[in-house]
């Protein structure tokens, strides 16, 4: 399969200072194998756009511990105490974005839309410094699209062209992130022959996907366990 690369080669596509779009809701749908490889590298000053920053020492939390990060943009960091500590010591820049605004900003980033007006957060602290405009008597704020240098996403299976399907609620931010970065690397559990998916079932068409990496994690008792 043309797009399949080793995880070592895959992370060579990431440069210091890059903005990474990283899929996942907590650890579910998060590309854990690629994250491990970044944590073991000397990549630095990365900004991660992801709903959370994993958990303490798990998933994206590893990048914080390893010192790869300059900043994080997402909706919920409270559950990772390392992130709270790093932020209060001034070691991590955090931009807090409502979850729906985050998803829509990435969708726009992939769809050629520069920005959008949303009523979410209008009139709140999170609207400070943002343009407010009234449409049909209701206040909306201007949010800019979000794009990444590299998207790191997690899918259940890829076919040999790179079409992707996802596992249950592990889909979350992955399909929109697949559209919004210059380079898209998908970590998958399995690669099957093109034609194995019914066209109706393909969630991410292959043109969005540049590289495929095999997942080293397996699930046991419904939880993630590293296999090597």
């Amino acid at each position: 399969m043309k797009k399949l690369v080793s995880v070592k080669d895959a992370i060579q596509l990431i440069n210091d200072g890059d903005t990474l779009l990283v899929g996942g809701f907590g650890l579910s749908g998060s590309p854990l194998t690629i994250i491990d490889e970044i944590a073991a590298s000397d990549k630095k000053d990365l900004t991660v756009v992801s709903n959370n920053l994993g958990e303490e020492g798990r998933g994206l939390g590893k990048l914080l511990v390893a010192g790869n990060l300059k900043g994080a943009k997402g909706s919920y960091f409270t559950t990772n105490r390392d992130a709270v500590k790093a932020w209060s010591k001034g070691e991590l820049e955090i931009e807090l974005i409502p979850q729906g605004t985050l998803a829509e900003a990435i969708r726009c980033g992939g769809a050629g839309i520069a920005g959008f007006y949303t009523k979410t957060a209008a009139g709140t602290k999170l609207a400070e410094g943002k343009e407010e405009r009234i449409f049909d008597g209701e206040a909306y704020i201007l949010e800019k699209a979000i794009k990444g240098d590299v998207a790191l996403i997690k899918a259940l299976k890829a076919d040999t062209l790179g079409n992707l399907i996802y596992d249950k609620t592990a889909r979350n931010f992955n399909p929109v992130m697949a559209t919004a970065a210059k380079v898209v690397i998908a970590e998958v559990d399995e690669i099957v022959e093109a034609g194995s998916f019914a066209p109706e079932d393909v969630v991410t068409p292959h043109i969005y996907v540049d590289y495929i990496v095999m997942n080293r994690y397996i699930k046991k008792g419904g939880r993630y366990v590293e296999s090597v």
């Binding site: 909706s75 409270t78 992130a83 932020w87 807090l96 409502p98 979850q99 009523k119 709140t124 999170l126």
Partner: peptide, 20 residues
């Protein structure tokens, strides 16, 4: 979503639900 004087690092979907 936030308590004054404490670090505010989580909003999740609260504001979207309130708005929509």
């Amino acid at each position: 979503w936030a308590v004054p004087g404490e670090t505010i690092l989580g909003v999740g979907g609260a504001m979207d639900l309130v708005a929509g």
